[in-house]
Design a protein around this nucleic acid. Sequence first.
RNA 1: GGUCUGUUCGUCUAGGGGUUAGGACACCAGAUUUUCAUUCUGGUAACACGGGUUCGAUUCCCGUACAGACUACCA
Length: 511
Amino acid sequence: MGEVRVRFAPSPTGALHIGGIRTALYNYLLARKLSGTMILRIEDTDQNRFVPGAEEYIRKSLEWVGIKIDEGVGVGGPHAPYRQSERKEIYRQYAQQLIDSGSAYYAFDTEQELEAMRERLKAAGVAIQQYNSITRMEMRNSLTLKPEEVNALIQSGTPFVIRLKIPRKEEVRLNDLIRGWVMVHSSQIDDKVLMKSDGMPTYHLANVVDDYLMKITHVIRGEEWLPSAPLHVLLYKYMGWEKQMPQFAHLPLLLKPDGNGKLSKRDADRLGFPIFPLTWQDPETKEIATGYKEAGYLPEAFINFLAFLGWNPGTTQEIFSIEELTSEFSLERINKAGARFDILKAQWYNQHYLRQKPLEELSEYLHSSLAKENIACSKEKALKIVTVMQDRVTFPQDFWEQGKFFFYPPAAYEEAVVAKKWNADGAKVLAAYRDALESKAAFDASIAKSTLEEVTAALGIGIGKVLQAVRLTITGLGGGPDLMMIMEIIGKNEVIRRIDHALKTLQVKVS
RNA sequence: GGUCUGUUCGUCUAGGGGUUAGGACACCAGAUUUUCAUUCUGGUAACACGGGUUCGAUUCCCGUACAGACUACCA
């Protein structure tokens, strides 16, 4: 076999969702694994559903997750254009070829006539109500009309579509790389529209023509396409392209976390997790949907997580860089069954990758994001904070969200902790600790600790008895990173200020 | 309804005619951390059901159930 060529062919009808990204990823992994070419084709043949900005969104999303396009929209290539709306003439020619060879025909039926036909069949108790080898003979098309009539209709500008003439009885077989042999009888397939009355091709025609012309070797797409794959096989056959027909691999679907059905944006909204890679604002409704990127997911975590939703290496290794994925990936190890989506696993991956990040990078991140909020923070302080916080965070923003006490005194003291840990001994120690700290020239974590030890020893109070009260005083919380490090980071003066404040406001509670 | 595709712990999955059915996430417990989290150790938990085939079936075959997709001049 020659060079491997795969394509990701989304339709620009809105934001690309997570399932689409996974499809793109599998295509990309196969291309890289086999030193092939990854093509991006935009399937914008439905003018009604076109959404401005969607194409750019697709490109940016792929870029964010690290999927590089070798050929296609945005990068060009030998088979340009890669936007189907710009290839209209090509499809028209091939549709004509099909008509000439007798594999397709013109149909002039109106929407009402089609509806009436379906109603009639339904009323008669016919199981399938479709335009097929039987019903087409009673419709208005170039099979039932005289050639002169057909010509007259076309000349007069009557809207028409071109339909594929599906044989009445033929066993259509295809060997799916994931599912094995799939057989469908042609009587189950309808005479699909190939060219719409607006002159645009439908997915079926455009897809087959482009895959052929662009020399695609593997069609990797979602399982929702499996039912129409036999139709595509027939198209290859009627075009005379059987030998060049790509191999098919239909991917299992992503299912909603709870209940039944496939994963949808509604589930994501309802359960509170992102469904899009990047934040997307619907140009119509203006509704904003937060993306994985903005929610704090690292692209490497996102990719690792996604790759494992339907694929596994067959070993117990679960952490894979994109490079490792490309070398281990294989179509054979893709599952058949749909995968239920679980955001908790994505969070675990994120936490893992975040911990692998170099401290310098994290502190740089913290420093710059604080600067954006106009919060003063030296680089040294940022580095200390991320050092002490790194193994407690899941998302980068947690450094700030769970570490506000590094910048502000507690706005309130956690009720439960006050009730349980604040006591007279604590207040007594704190008052003495405050004075002891004030008298010391130097200050850091170890001095903070030794001073506290001295004070508690002098008062004859166990340090464990009051430590939580000290923490409460400094952070307002019952848990957090090493207290002595927190004190070092905020500095002696701030520690004293917070103790004074706590003594003033919390004292009353013990009297 | 019809066609097609599926079905191993709660979830993602490994495995495959004879296994203590393995791992990960989640959950629970213990240890460490004079806090919480981390970390470590341990634990609960699965072959949808019914028939075959077979010495033996979770694994192969057939049904049933359940689930999903498709059934447009949408992709």
